[in-house]
Every structure is written in C-alpha cells, then in structure tokens.
Computed example of a mutant assay.
Amino acid sequence: MAENNTITFYDLQLASGCTISPFVWATKYALKHKGFDLDIVPGGFTGIMERTGGKTERLPAIQDDGKWVLDSWLIAEYLDETYPDRPRLIGSEGEKILTQTLENWLWKTAIGPWMTCFIKSYRDRSLPQDHQYVTESRERMFGNTMENIIIGREDRLPLVPPQLELLRTALRQQKWFGGDTPNYADYRLLAVFLFCASVADTPVLTEDDPLRDWIDRGFDLYGGLGRHEGMSPLFGLKLREGDPEPFVKDAAKMGGGLVSRNTGPKSTSEETAHLKGEKTTA
C-alpha cells in the first residue's frame, strides 16, 4: 500500500514541464481523485526505458510501494481494486464501455484534426532531445512533413467546435459526466482538452463556448492541476465570414427529444413550435 500516501508517477513532459500525453493527464487526475500525493519522475519521449529501469517504453506508469502498473486504464482499475475505500473512478463495466466509446469518438473528432493543426508546435515545445524523435515519428505517422501537415489549419480549426455538441448536450443536464462529482469519464475527456492546451499555439474554441464551464472547472480541480504555466488558452477562436456556427445556441433546435424531458405539453412546447415553424411566446 502507498507509503506515506505517495505513489511514484512517471510523467511525459514538454520543455516547459507541462504534461503532454492525454493518457498521462488522465492518470494524474485519477491519482488525485484517489487522494494520493505524487512523487513525479520527470522526462520526455526519449529515455523512458532508462527512467523506468526497462519496465516500459511507453507512459503512463506508476510504482506503488515497488509494484509497477502500466497503461492508463489498467492503472485506474488497479487503483479501484487496491483502494476500494477511496472514491471510485469507474462505477461499473458498463460505465467503462460507455467512457471508452465516448473517448474514441472524441479522439477522432478533436485530437485528430487538432494534431494536424499543432503538430509543429507539438514538436517545438518538446524537450530539445526529443525533437528528432517527434519529427521522425509523427511525419512517418502522417506521411508528410510537419510544415506541409499544418497547411490550411485556419480552415480546419473552425470545423471542430460544431462537432462537439454531444458533449454540450450531456453537460446541459448535469455538472459532470460523473453526475454531481467528476469520475474517470470526466478525466478521460478532459485529457483531450488538456492535451490541446499543452500544444496549441492558437485558441480552438470561441470565448462563449458552453464547454468552457466544464473545462474551466476541470482544469481547476485538485488545486489547479490543469493550470500549468506552459499551457496555452483554449478560448478565443476568431471566426471568419463563412465559418460554421461553433455551437447550437438555441437548445430547441437540437430536436430529437434529447433536450428536455417530457413532463407534459408545457415542457415540450418550445421544441414543438420550432418543428412547426411557429413563433414561441416569451
């Protein structure tokens, strides 16, 4: 069991000391959720095998009184199994599956496009000794040079916010994805925005995006865990003429019976009027 309430945590950092990997971010939050102090082993992409004594070439990784646990999901499950008296991260197998499904969607929707916009700053912000590895591995991944990959990003950035309406809809109904308090689903999804803030050199969401409340509260958790000085502002995206609306500003236009619960005609009148093309009374 964790001696002195401390677990050794192997970080993956940029030159500023800011965490870069979404998986490592999620693990950092999971450990704080469980109430642990972190003995952080710093470092970047190169030298992971040396730092971990040959235990792994990828992070996150933790040591709990000599016991090694690898992989962000396995770490979360280990923490719940080993410390059941502390707040749970994952409430059920069904909750885990739903979280993984939503995370996979968010990666495709946001991280993929954002990576093509910020891959050069991703490299430039990494530790000097990591530049060659990041350049070669990411250019091989995308099949192009970093300079070419980011071309046209000003056209791609405005396309991402409208695709995030699923998150906004869920958060209109509740404070966290965990309900009244955050759970591992919140941390896995927040990790996408934490990653973006660590590498973005220009904002990705408009100032008035409804996601701001949840993101700001998430970044403020555990004494401002997500407020590292090396991170960039997420909010402040300037839209150009012809760019799509960044989010649905009239919830009734969402339709599909998802916005409000049917408790009688009064609860559905606004949406019904919209579907009929009628004006609603104030």
Rank of each mutant, 00 (worst) to 15 (best):
L171I: 05
A26M: 07
E103C: 12
C196M: 13
S121P: 07
G230K: 01
D71G: 05
T27R: 05
T52A: 03
M254Q: 14
P265K: 09
G178I: 07
Y184F: 15
G264L: 04
K249T: 10
K55H: 10
A2E: 02
I119S: 14
L106S: 00
T52R: 07
A30V: 11
E245Y: 08
E271W: 08
M1T: 07
Q174A: 10
K67G: 09
S137C: 10
S269L: 15
A282I: 10
I75L: 04
P162L: 00
R86Y: 05
C196Q: 12
E147G: 14
I75Q: 02
P84F: 07
S260H: 14
L190R: 03
D37E: 14
F9Q: 03
C117P: 01
S92I: 08
A2S: 01
N5H: 06
Y222I: 05
L166V: 15
M254K: 13
I97L: 15
E278A: 13
V248D: 12
S92V: 09
Y78I: 04
D155V: 02
A197V: 04
T52H: 02
F36R: 04
R240W: 02
A15G: 08
D65N: 13
P246H: 07
A2C: 03
S137Q: 12
L159I: 00
D85K: 15
Q163Y: 03
I40K: 02
T181H: 14
W25C: 04
G226C: 06
I149Y: 03
H274F: 15
I90K: 01
H274A: 15
H274P: 00
A61Q: 08
R58V: 13
E154N: 09
G43W: 01
R156T: 02
L211N: 04
Y10N: 08
K276Y: 12
T206K: 03
R125T: 01
E271A: 07
D80G: 05
A252D: 14
C196R: 01
H228I: 00
L14N: 13
P265C: 10
S126F: 08
L159V: 00
L38C: 06
I111Q: 12
E93A: 15
R51F: 05
L98Y: 11
I75C: 03
P42A: 11
T8V: 13
L12K: 06
L12Y: 03
T145Y: 09
R125F: 01
Y122S: 08
E93H: 15
L70E: 09
D65G: 06
L89Y: 09
G230N: 09
G91D: 14
A185Q: 08
L12E: 01
L194K: 07
E3A: 14
G218H: 05
A200Y: 05
S121L: 00
L237M: 12
A2Q: 01
I90L: 12
W107G: 11
L38M: 02
E245F: 09
L38N: 03
I48H: 01
G54M: 06
G256V: 06
V259L: 12
F177W: 02
S232A: 15
Q129C: 08
R123D: 04
L127F: 10
Y222N: 09
L205T: 02
L79S: 01
K120F: 01
N104W: 09
Q100V: 05
G277W: 02
M146F: 11
V24D: 00
P233F: 11
V41S: 07
F36N: 00
N5I: 01
D209M: 03
E147Q: 11
N144Y: 04
G223K: 02
A200V: 06
I20P: 00
D39Y: 07
D11M: 02
L79F: 01
N262E: 13
E245G: 05
I62Y: 05
